[in-house]
Write a protein that binds this DNA or RNA. Structure first.
Length: 690
DNA sequence: GCTCTTTCATCAAA
DNA sequence: CTTTGATGAAAGAG
């Protein structure tokens, strides 16, 4: 973040910090100066996994006055989301685009271009902060909508997988069905007239897995066509393109994209390929050369992934990355592989936009890049080495003992769980004891994604008869992505991934020493690595059935905070101890039990709440039990994952008939392990081919 | 409005 | 694993 204010001096910055203007930090400062508050018992700088506890209070509108006193500020002054945290990219594009000091091009048309651009995009040189508030709202909306869409897709997939044993028909296109559900609910974003230039709430580097996602946020409307365009008067100009094909030989270095026009393909059985015509998308792109308007570019990669859970059949997974704005420079005719004429367009990326992380990660220089100071902080204990990168200063990561399991004290004795007796995979949700404990469903998709946030997830464990490959064993197998820790500008060390991470993926556990609350209390203040666990779900009946239908009612009834346990990752820990707090996080903490039946001591498993591009910092909400007011303001939009479950539940009722159709075939699987470079393998036809 | 056509999707069978 | 056919939703064009 750019500005570091004075508050920063008050708070001792250690490895795990919130951003300077994060509500939590404000709250903490306020509490310091106002020690006689009523909630001193909670004034501990500790993380907790039970955020919805506070959410329920916010919803019930209690204690608004107290809340104001606590922070010393009216609650409304606390901006709900996106208020300074790890998401540094917001609104970046608009800012930098107008930095006229940038060398735009060497054709000397900078001023000319800028004027045309201004004309089209009607952007009056927005200063740094002006557009931010509205833009942040748009960002939240886009992220919420996408999370909702992804959650619906996972839910539908879960139902498909659960019913795959029976003989009924499956839903063929889950992506389309999920889109239809969202549309019926009026959840589309940026509807109305088409947008030329940047789409509010969408940032360079955002990743998607379905074309439907591009449509529902207004980034690119056609579901199949690669060129979207709009009419201005009698003229059509291009607004966005999807580049899923090859031609990208010069990926590494240049910001030039050669794009092939549409049409001319032999689509049907008896049709012959034809010369492309200068109409529709092709015409729009050509017109955009004259108009010099921005064209959004979305790059698509296709890769075949294999799941470790399931029948071993691969599945093609597409990843679409928003690449930013380009300008069409020229076009010409060429001969395609089928011998007919095709149009080609040269597009150039507008300078000043965020770097494209996928380019970095794919480039060969990347492995030997600067700032690498520790090759593997886990010292070989993790499946992947976790390196430390510091391009800010000379600091090395703090010393601690890396562990891959919890460190238990002498007094601790685990309660062995009852396992399931499934020998042929835990797919029968009625017979599998673990599925029953999860409310009659396996909480994961076969691709290893968690379907929705739950109070507690029961994975199969050592007492189960199912094999380690059971798809109800996800988080117990450890990290699946190549992670690294890096020095941030203002929040100490942080964690990011070198590959793309799809929504719902397991990231890592929060490991450390298990402490009783009394002991944790003593360490509070000097220890920044405490995580409160196992709070507040003694009444399991409330969680299990009701939570997805009436979450707030259930939660308000179970607000009693018991004496619990805490994980201290100061001396012993894993990569999880480096993950920072954010009020608009991309991860969340999920309670999981598998090798122990003590609900007071669940594993704290961090999962991706949305698609996370490579090199984007990963964060979760610490849910500090320090200042409820800040949380009340901040958690509203935070619980989308949890909320998704509720909304899905109701949505599914509406389309019950649809969804009741069941699958006949064991669905194939997709995996989202690493993001392999598929450029070389891309099938390429002039029009993308069919 | 109503069809028809087009479309760098997607799935699953061959 | 690669290819191919069937299916599909949305929007422009007539």
């Amino acid at each position: 973040m750019a500005g570091v204010n004075d508050e920063n001096k008050i708070v001792v910055v250690k490895g795990l910090m919130a951003a300077v203007n994060c509500p939590w930090r404000r709250g903490r400062a306020a509490v310091k100066s106002n020690p006689s508050t009523t909630s001193m018992k909670r004034n501990r700088a500790k993380r907790s996994n039970f955020a919805w506890h506070y959410k329920s209070k916010a919803l019930f509108g209690k204690k608004q006055d107290d809340v104001g006193k606590l922070t010393g500020k009216p609650i409304k002054s606390i901006s709900p989301l996106m208020e300074g945290d790890a998401d540094e990219g917001a609104s970046q594009m608009q800012m930098v685009l107008w930095n006229e000091g940038d060398a735009y091009d060497n054709d000397g048309q900078l001023q000319n271009d800028l004027q045309l651009i201004k004309k089209w995009h009607n952007l009056s040189l927005p200063p740094f902060g002006a557009a931010c508030s509205s833009d942040k709202g748009a960002r939240i909306k886009v992220r919420e909508t996408l999370r909702l869409y992804q959650a619906i897709v996972r839910k539908l997939l879960q139902e498909e997988e659960a019913k795959s044993m029976s003989k009924e028909n499956s839903i063929r296109r889950i992506d389309l069905l999920a889109g239809k559900i969202l549309k019926d609910k009026g959840k589309y974003v940026n509807t109305g007239k088409q947008i030329l230039g940047p789409v509010p709430g969408v940032e360079v580097g955002d990743e998607f897995h379905y074309r439907v996602e591009l449509m529902i946020i207004g980034l690119h409307r056609p579901l199949q066509s690669g060129i979207d365009y709009l009419k201005v008067g009698k003229k059509i100009i291009a607004t966005s393109i999807v580049a899923s094909g090859g031609y990208a030989n010069d990926v590494d270095s240049s910001d030039v994209l050669i794009y092939t026009g549409q049409g001319g393909n032999a689509t049907g059985g008896d049709k012959q390929p034809e010369d492309q015509k200068l109409e529709r998308g092709n015409l729009a792109l050509k017109n955009s050369i004259e108009e010099r308007n921005f064209v959004r570019v979305i790059r698509g990669f296709k890769d075949t992934k294999f799941s470790e859970f399931g029948d071993g059949r691969g599945k093609v997974v597409a990843t679409y990355t928003y690449d930013g704005l380009y300008i069409v420079k020229k076009y010409w005719q060429d001969i395609g592989p089928h011998g007919k004429m095709v149009y080609k367009f040269e597009l150039r990326r507008v300078p000043g936009q965020s770097d494209l992380s996928w380019k970095h990660v794919k480039s060969k220089k990347f492995k030997a890049r600067e700032g690498r100071c520790v090759d593997d902080i886990s010292e070989g204990k993790e499946v992947f080495p976790i390196c430390a990168v510091n391009t800010i200063d000379n600091e090395k990561p703090p010393k601690f003992t890396y562990v891959t399991r919890m460190v238990f004290p002498d007094w601790y004795h685990s309660i062995p769980p009852r396992g399931c007796d499934c020998v042929n995979g835990c797919s029968d949700s009625e017979k599998c004891a673990c599925a029953v404990r999860n409310g009659g469903e396996i909480p994961y998709n076969y691709n290893g994604a968690i379907v929705e946030a739950k109070p507690l997830v029961y994975e199969c464990g050592p007492c189960c008869r199912c094999p380690p490959s059971c798809h109800n064993r996800v988080s117990q197998h450890g990290i699946k992505f190549q992670l690294e820790i890096f020095k941030t500008e203002s929040r100490g060390w942080g964690v990011r991934s070198l590959s793309s991470i799809p929504s719902g993926s397991f990231i890592c556990e929060y490991l450390g020493e298990l402490l009783e609350d009394k002991e944790a209390e003593q360490r509070t203040g000097s220890d920044e690595y405490l995580f409160d666990i196992g709070q507040n779900y003694n009444d399991r009946a409330l969680w299990d059935g009701l939570s997805t239908i009436m979450p707030d009612a259930a939660l308000s009834a179970s607000e009693v905070v018991e004496e619990g346990f805490t994980i201290d990752a100061a001396k012993y820990g894993n990569v999880g101890r480096f993950i920072n707090h954010s009020c608009s996080p991309n991860l969340y903490a999920q309670n999981v039990l598998y090798d122990n039946d003590d609900k007071r001591i669940p594993h704290i498993m961090l999962f991706a709440a949305e698609n996370i591009p490579p090199l984007q910092e990963m964060t979760y909400h610490y849910n500090y039990t320090i200042d409820e007011s800040a949380l009340a303001g901040c958690t509203d939009a935070l619980f989308d994952v949890f909320h998704c479950a509720v909304i899905i539940e109701s949505l599914l009722c509406d389309i019950g008939a649809f969804v009741a159709i069941v699958g006949a075939v064991f669905p194939s699987l997709h995996v989202f392990d690493s993001h392999a470079d598929v450029f070389g393998k891309q099938r390429f036809l002039p029009n993308g081919g069919r």
